Computed example of a mutant assay.
Amino acid sequence: MFEIKNLTVAYQGELILDQVSLTVQKGKITGIIGPNGAGKSTLIKGALGLIKCQSGQTYIQGESLAKVRDQIAYVEQRSAVDLTFPINVLDLVLTGTYPKLGLFKSPGPLEKQAALEALAQVDLVDFKERQIGSLSGGQLQRVFVARAIVQDATVIILDEPFVGIDMSSEQKIMGILKKWSDVGKTIIVVNHDLNKVTQYFDDLVIIQRGIVAQGPVTETYQMANIQKAFSLDFGKLLFEQDMTGDSEDHG
């Protein structure tokens, strides 16, 4: 279980999140959606202590974040990555072994074998010597997932992992996320494509400078909640499209 309690974040005096609390269940894939500027990435970064917060605590299975930080694998937005950094694919995946190695220890043969096996899971062994800047968006995102595989964390958080990637990579990543949830890991995905919500997620959190709704997708992904977070017109248009699609599928 991943818990955020009373998280408050402000930028330059503007309140973004105010006393937000959230519980994410293990063994589920939980999506976080909301319009641009709603605070989705801020929620994640605040919970992980990556940005300054006015208040808030994060717990995993009741343990404070400081004690279990190595149990979290965080895949940040691809746009935040310096693609000119001189590191190849294999070495990037190996960084996922660092949290468990401890200080002053380098990856050995076992870690390198684990990294190669992780790259095999995402079909990128042949790219192991490539510099990360030479990869496509989908390939790079799969490398980040391979790094999370070798980290063997209990909580995996991905911030907009499907932006600008090919459908094949998206499907491979979702396949791995489903396997992780099946073995009891906690998966959190900040997502932009609302058309994939019912297909990809078990639970859903809808955010608009605070939590509009949270819970099973079947209960939270409703027109009224989407209209609260986005707009009346957007919610109506989205659900009219869904209903049209359903009728076409069954027609």
Rank of each mutant, 00 (worst) to 15 (best):
F162L: 11
I165W: 07
A148W: 00
V163F: 01
S181M: 08
I149M: 09
Q171M: 13
Q141T: 08
R142H: 05
V183H: 10
D152T: 01
R147G: 00
R147I: 01
F162N: 03
R142L: 15
G184D: 11
L135D: 07
V189M: 11
D159L: 14
P161H: 09
I149L: 15
T154Q: 15
D182T: 12
K185D: 03
A148Q: 02
I165F: 11
S136E: 08
M167R: 15
V190P: 03
E170Y: 01
A153Q: 01
W180I: 04
S134V: 00
L135G: 11
V145L: 15
G133K: 01
V190Y: 03
V189E: 10
V163L: 04
V150E: 09
S168T: 15
E160L: 04
A146H: 02
L158Q: 07
K185P: 05
G175M: 10
V189I: 15
D182G: 14
P161K: 09
V163N: 15
I157P: 03
V150K: 11
D159M: 13
I165H: 13
V150M: 10
A153E: 04
K185Y: 02
V189F: 07
V145H: 00
V143E: 01
K172T: 14
K178L: 04
I157N: 08
I173E: 03
K172N: 11
V155E: 05
V145E: 01
G133H: 03
L135P: 08
L135W: 09
V163P: 00
D159R: 09
Q171T: 09
I187D: 07
D166Y: 12
L177N: 06
G137I: 13
F144Y: 12
M167N: 09
F162V: 07
V145T: 08
I157D: 05
Q139M: 02
V190E: 02
E170W: 01
R142P: 06
D159W: 13
I187S: 05
G138E: 10
Q141Y: 04
V155H: 04
F144C: 09
V145D: 01
M174G: 03
P161Y: 08
I176K: 13
Q171G: 00
T154M: 13
Q139H: 04
F162D: 00
T154R: 14
R147Q: 14
D182W: 00
S168Q: 15
Q139V: 05
K179Q: 15
S181G: 13
S169G: 11
K178R: 15
V163G: 00
G137D: 10
E170P: 01
A146S: 04
T186G: 05
F144N: 04
I165N: 08
S169V: 10
I188E: 07
R147D: 02
K172A: 13
D152V: 00
T154N: 15
D182S: 15
V155M: 04
D152W: 00
V145Y: 00
Q171K: 14
I156C: 14
G175T: 06
V190R: 02
K179H: 11
A148D: 03
G133E: 01
E160S: 10
G137F: 05
T154H: 14
P161D: 07
S169N: 11
S168C: 05
T186Q: 07
W180P: 12
D152R: 12
K178N: 10
V189L: 13
T154K: 14
V150T: 10
K185M: 06
Q141F: 05
V150Y: 13
